[in-house]
Simulated assay, not measured.
Amino acid sequence: MTRDKTKTTNVLVVGTGGQGVITASEILSDVAMLSGFDTKKSEIHGMSQRGGVVTSHVRYSETVYSPMIMEGEADILLSFELAETVRWLHFLQPDGRVISNRQRIIPPAIYAGMGSYPEDAENVIRQRTTDPIFVDALPLAETLGNPRLVNTILLGIASTLLDLPLDQWTAVIARRVPATFKALNLEAFEKGRGIQ
């Protein structure tokens, strides 16, 4: 996605506690800053330690005044969990793109009988967006040897839609992950870049 440098790019990252949402948004923010953009990030942890909703807003441009993305303004909705994708679709702009992990995490409230999981989530997303990208990131991460690679795989996909240099992505990932996992994370990132 090549944009006018004065236009703000808005990426909303969503998921549940423990999935790596905050780490992913921190990596994205670092990449944008190192690429010369004014970058703002805001996050809401909710009850993240108990599998609650976690959201992070990342915005970058020549100048950004607010860290918050307004409804209908997200260029990309990067989601770690299918129901969370549906929950946050209203933040997407009309020509925005969805990248969604197919993982389903049933919240405690549903187990307690206070609602139901949207069984037709993918159809809802397809009806309300153009060209959504769905990925089975958890099985792919497990195949690579570590389920925590989901966020790096999803960032790899996002990197193909954003106007940020590839070398900045790899530099930030290499710097942010423990040295023993650097090669594995870079491999996961490249796997993500190959998904369309």
Rank of each mutant, 00 (worst) to 15 (best):
Y60K: 00
G192K: 00
P107Q: 10
G145I: 07
I44K: 04
D75M: 04
V54I: 07
V135R: 02
E43Q: 15
L155H: 06
W169M: 11
L155W: 01
D95W: 00
A112I: 03
L78T: 09
D4S: 13
I27K: 00
T39E: 08
T180M: 15
P67F: 09
V21P: 07
V31R: 00
L144N: 08
T180C: 12
G46K: 01
M70P: 01
E62I: 13
E142G: 02
L82N: 03
Q127V: 08
T2A: 14
Y111R: 06
S25D: 10
R87D: 02
S100F: 07
S48K: 00
G192P: 09
E73I: 11
T152G: 01
T143F: 14
T55I: 13
W88H: 14
R50K: 13
F80Q: 03
L186I: 00
W169S: 13
V31S: 00
T152A: 09
N101I: 09
I173D: 06
R126D: 09
E84K: 07
P178N: 11
G96N: 06
A109R: 11
I99N: 07
I133T: 14
I27E: 03
L12I: 10
R104F: 01
R193S: 03
P107S: 09
P118F: 14
S159W: 04
H90N: 15
P147H: 12
P107E: 12
E84R: 01
G192Q: 04
M70T: 11
D136N: 15
T129M: 08
L28Q: 05
S56F: 06
I22L: 15
V58M: 06
V58T: 13
A171G: 02
I106D: 05
S29I: 01
R97H: 14
